[in-house]
Structures are given as structure tokens and as C-alpha cells.
Amino acid sequence: MPARVSLKSLKRRGGLFEGIKSNIQALAVGVKYFIDPQRSTLLYPKEYIEHRPGYRGFIVFIKDKCISCAACARICPSAAMKMVRVTEVDPKHPDKPRQKQYPVINYQRCIFCGYCVDICPTEALYHTPFQDVVYESLADMFLTLEAFQLEPGRPSVSEGSPVVYEVDEERGLIKRRR
């Protein structure tokens, strides 16, 4: 069924009575919320949002699963992910060091599109469900291979309690403590 056009026209404006009525209506809505504000403000440092599992947050690398295919570095739209060459011990031949490529990420450039996570053929990358991470300097945002394998520290967790936002029919977003 294709869309239909519905021609509408503006209400004719009434006289004095209509004016008084709409003034009172506006004031009544104002007073209603003045009495019961129905807030959903997040008191940020005291509370923090616990996102759902699908949230595209910071990316963590699992080195053991990586097959060095470099697909993540190639798909990255903002060139945030780069491959680095490392010399490491080959588990099969402990005496012979081998050279391998692993991805590292630059969070100055990352836009959290999640292409790298989606393209990884072995699920060696995954999203953490949070984005409130603080770096002290820009240089810290270039993650080393070691740092890329750890979930970044989240200062909110130590300072606040988690809340979950839910959609409510009456009040819009409501926060629920966990």
C-alpha cells in the first residue's frame, strides 16, 4: 500500500476565549511538571549507564585467536587500526623466533563503527559495552599490543553504581538501579 497524501489545514485561531484557554493549558502543563518533574537525569559520577551487550564500545583484542590476516586494518574507515610486526616465540618451535603481525589501535582516530569486529574471521576482536574511558594524554591513546589485549580501565565503576535505562510508556526513559 503506497503512501497517501493527507491535506490538512491549520486551525483557525479563535478569539479571546481561545487565547485564555490556550494560555491556561500551557501554564497547566508547566505546573504539572513543576509538581512532578519525571526526571531521568543520570547523576554521572555517582551513577553510570550499564549498556546492553550489543553496545559498540572500546575494542579488545584476543591475541591467541588472531591469524594476522590484516582484514581489520584494511576495513578500518578512519585508519585507526594498524598492523605491527612483532618477533615472538613460536609455540611449535620454541628455539626459533618468528615474526608475526598483530593489530594495534589508535583511539584518537577510532570512530567505533565496529567494522573491524565484524570483519574479523576468527572473532579475535570484541566490543566492551562501555565508552567512558579516560586517557591522561594523547600519547596514551595509541594502544600498544599489550594494552590492546586488556579491557580498558573504567573509572566510573569505582566511583558510582550502575543503572540501566528502560523505556516506559508513561515517563519515557526511566533509570533502574541494578
Binding site: 500500500m1 503512501a3 491549520l10
Partner: peptide
């Protein structure tokens, strides 16, 4: 959009 039932409001 051709399978959905909706109106285009025009003033």
C-alpha cells in the same frame, strides 16, 4: 515504503 500504510501530511 510502498508496503506501509502511512500518510504524507501536507499543509
Amino acid at each position: 515504503y510502498d508496503e506501509l500504510d502511512f500518510e504524507i501530511p501536507v499543509f
